[in-house]
Design a protein around this nucleic acid. Structure first.
Lengths: 113, 113
DNA sequence: CTTTGCACTTGCATATTGCAAGTAAATTTA
DNA sequence: TAAATTTACTTGCAATATGCAAGTGCAAAG
């Protein structure tokens, strides 16, 4: 195995350790278009994530500095989540996933998207 | 939610349904540098995957036409796995993951990669 | 000062992953 | 050519992660 392959192996697997689960990338993707979300905004997302899982994923993403919490201007009861620079830099990954999916999964008409 | 966001949502989540688990993308990444692998080659990979999980992931990836099986020229006992066009087209995704990881996870010296 | 909304937590069921051992067919070795 | 080994898996069970429903505590609104 080449040095380059080993490095790539390590990089990919380090990345997946953080956001390579069933939900994290969807959370990140949500934040990319929405700029910022509250906890309950995530729960309203079409792919329904369980609230305990959401909490645990947000926690891991925050620990890894991919997202951060902000005070909500309207209320202390609300929390805003936003991508950090590091999180935003995942945009090219999400874009490439979209391009791939667009090519290989034509959206059925009846979904009306 | 905009139409564009919904489409992207759907695309990302359809993609992750197939290869968004803990192992699939590592398998795919292996095949990208190796061109082709046998079952036991995967098992020798530095990130140790359990053999039953490997079998089940390979099965799902094959069903989804991301990889395919080929006869091994040397022996009927061996099987070669290779990426399809569809699988190969995931290369940009893997590249972007690498670029991101390179930026944010400097490899510790002691790993010697 | 009571009710509602928001961001979680808790307890338990179900699903997914991990480990160790086993199997069957093909090949190699004695 | 019979026995040992290699190869690609499968099987059974333990550990971990996810899913669901209900609950908690603080903030704000009525």
């Amino acid at each position: 195995m080449t040095r380059a392959k080993k490095r790539s192996d390590w990089h990919v697997s380090r990345s997946l350790d953080i956001w390579g689960d069933k939900w994290s990338l969807l959370i990140i993707r949500d934040l990319m278009t929405a700029k910022q979300c509250t906890y309950s905004d995530f729960l309203k997302s079409p792919k329904r994530i369980a609230t305990n899982i959401l909490a645990s994923r947000l926690h891991v993403l925050e620990e890894n500095k991919i997202i951060r919490k902000l005070e909500h201007p309207d209320s202390k009861a609300k929390v805003l989540y936003r991508l950090t620079r590091k999180g935003n830099d995942l945009l090219p990954v999400v874009i490439e996933i979209n391009l791939w999916a667009e090519k290989y999964f034509p959206i059925p008409d009846e979904l009306n998207l």
